[in-house]
Simulated assay, not measured.
Amino acid sequence: MALRIKSHWWNDENERSLAEISSALAFIGWRIAVDKAISLHCERFVYRDDAQRLLVVQEYLLFLIQIADRMAHIQLDDEQRRELITQFARKCVEHVQDNSQDLLGPGDYGSPFIARLNERSTEYAEFRLDDDGPTYPFLRHLGHEIQTLMGDQDENRWVIDQVMDKDGWDAYKRFAKAFRDLFD
């Protein structure tokens, strides 16, 4: 089933705040990340449990936050960019906390996500987003992180290829389109 993303404002005559845009981006990012986790399962990659599946969703979110940061750098001044990405990340933390708590029970799921975001931000800083999208090393890093989460048992051995060649690109394209649409 195809994922339908609504990325146009209902009343596009009103100017939207960065808080509204970041909230919409977080919702869209969450939906894309969940869709990509489901896509891996549909391709017969195996999750050992819901916790592992949620970590894969989070890894996609971390990737999309990096994409948003690169796109915001082109479109916004430094202060606006910082505000947008900070609020986007905060909304992602809320999605992670709420959904993890629903599936896994009470606990602090947001703090580990923030720690991974800080770690990934440093790692992804080495990679570029050019006119065609994320570079090969950018996608390879996403694939590597998901491969690490999924393990290298026989059924998950090629997950890195699936992420690099198909799912990572698709996540980028859907998110980038939504990002541009929300600012139009």
Rank of each mutant, 00 (worst) to 15 (best):
F63T: 07
G29L: 02
S7Y: 08
H41G: 01
A19E: 14
E126A: 10
F175P: 06
L103E: 07
L129R: 06
K36N: 08
E155C: 02
E145H: 10
E145Q: 10
R16D: 06
Q162P: 00
I67W: 01
A171K: 14
L103F: 09
E43W: 00
N99Y: 05
D170S: 13
L149G: 02
Y60C: 08
L103Q: 13
L139T: 12
R180E: 10
Q147G: 05
K173L: 12
V96G: 04
L142Q: 07
V93L: 09
R128Q: 11
V46F: 01
H73M: 10
E94F: 03
Q97C: 08
A68C: 04
R157Y: 14
S100F: 03
M71N: 06
I74G: 06
A26R: 07
R90I: 03
L142H: 09
I38D: 15
L104E: 09
Q97E: 14
L18D: 08
I32M: 13
A33M: 02
V159L: 07
K166S: 15
E123K: 13
C42D: 14
F183R: 02
G110C: 05
D102C: 03
Y136T: 13
D170P: 00
I38N: 13
M150S: 05
Q66E: 15
I67A: 04
N14H: 10
W169G: 01
N99I: 07
D152K: 11
Y136L: 13
I74C: 06
D102Y: 05
D78H: 10
D130Y: 00
K6V: 03
D131K: 15
Q75I: 01
L103W: 02
E155L: 04
D77K: 12
L55N: 06
R140K: 11
F27Y: 03
L64F: 10
S23E: 15
I38W: 09
P106Y: 03
L139G: 10
H144M: 11
S22T: 09
M1T: 12
V34G: 04
N156S: 12
Q162R: 13
Q66M: 12
W9S: 04
K173H: 15
L182A: 07
I85W: 11
E123P: 00
Q52S: 09
W158N: 14
A51P: 04
I146H: 07
W30E: 08
F179H: 12
A24M: 10
A115Y: 01
L3D: 07
Q153W: 03
G133P: 05
Q75S: 15
A2S: 13
V163K: 03
D12V: 07
I38M: 06
S121P: 01
L104W: 07
G168T: 05
L149Y: 07
A115R: 12
N118M: 08
H41Q: 14
S23D: 11
F175H: 04
Y47Q: 05
L149V: 12
